[in-house]
């Protein structure tokens, strides 16, 4: 097993150590570690059931780990609830799209933007000038975000009525609208054709550069990850079996075995 040495440049934005999640008998994730480099696009790949989504659920505070620590900008967030993790600057998308289906695309983003632009209950009830300014600001920022993701034209449509690709991008729009430092993308190109995937690739790079994001990406699609990521980790049955740059991971025998099965002439 080859594990590449971690090259750490800059501040430790996300440090994970010994992260383990057990579901009664099943070990979904075992002894996972990460030191995330700011500004990087970090890929996590692995076959079905490797623990990728469990990892995202742990990182976003949706699920409590059995053991291990998660430190965000030096602060221990291991047992923080999801909404605190989100406020601390970690946003995510979901493998099976989770939008607020009855709400318009714009409102889906506004409800995310407003987390950074709070206003009091009394102000809201009385519709004070301060409240109306805030609402205006929230709407403007939400429109900018929709525009950035190419969704300006569908702003007023209910999220559930949008075509599949738009729904995927709306989820990303909603996530970046919380102004995160770290963006977790769970299978962002699931169900997309090669052209759409290529567009998505550009979009992810552009978001990283424009919004100063660090991205962790989980995917099935090996070419996408190889193309996009600076560093790749490979999970198999909850275990980290490889960790390094794309070229290194591509030639790792353990990875080949995990994906293609045991070679008979090995």
């Amino acid at each position: 097993m080859t594990v590449a040495p971690v090259v750490d440049v800059g501040s430790p934005m996300l440090e994970i150590d010994g992260l383990t999640k057990r579901y009664s008998g099943l070990v979904a994730l075992s002894n996972y570690a990460l030191d995330l480099r700011p500004g990087s696009i970090h890929g996590v790949i692995g076959p079905n059931g490797a623990g990728k989504t469990t990892l995202f659920n742990l990182l976003s505070g949706m699920v409590r780990p059995t053991s291990g620590t998660i430190r965000l900008f030096g602060v221990d967030m291991t047992n923080s609830p999801a909404h605190d993790v989100a406020r601390a600057g970690v946003a995510r998308t979901f493998q099976n799209i989770r939008l607020f289906g009855d709400m318009s695309a714009l409102d889906n983003v506004k409800v995310a933007v407003q987390q950074r632009l709070p206003i009091g209950l009394a102000q809201s009830l009385l519709s004070t000038p301060a409240f109306r300014r805030r609402e205006h600001e929230i709407t403007e920022r939400a429109r900018e975000t929709l525009e950035r993701l190419g969704l300006a034209a569908v702003a007023s449509r209910p999220a559930s009525s949008l075509p599949y690709g738009d729904q995927r991008r709306l989820e990303i729009a909603r996530a970046v609208a919380t102004e995160p430092k770290i963006l977790l993308l769970d299978e962002p190109n699931a169900g997309m054709n090669p052209t759409e995937t290529a567009d998505l690739l550009d979009l992810i790079r552009r978001l990283r550069d424009d919004l100063d994001l660090t991205i962790i990406l989980v995917a099935h699609d090996i070419p996408l990850v190889m193309n996009l990521c600076d560093r790749i980790q490979v999970l198999n049955y909850g275990e980290l079996i490889a960790d390094g740059d794309p070229a290194m991971v591509r030639n790792n025998p353990d990875v080949i075995t995990a994906y293609l099965g045991q070679a008979s002439h090995a």
């Binding site: 976003s60 505070g61 949706m62 609830p81 999801a82 909404h83 989100a86 406020r87 946003a91 995510r92 979901f94 989770r98 939008l99 607020f100 289906g101 009855d102 709400m103 409102d107 889906n108 506004k110 409800v111 995310a112 407003q114 987390q115 709070p118 206003i119 209950l121 809201s124 009830l125 409240f131 805030r134 609402e135 929230i138 909603r174 996530a175 609208a177 919380t178």
Partner: peptide, 22 residues
């Protein structure tokens, strides 16, 4: 208002609502 949006959002999808800080 934002309060209403948060109410309807968590009604729509609790996981998604938590993921954006509600």
């Amino acid at each position: 208002s934002g309060y209403g949006r948060a109410m309807f959002a968590q009604k729509g999808d609790r996981w998604a609502a938590r993921s954006i800080g509600i």
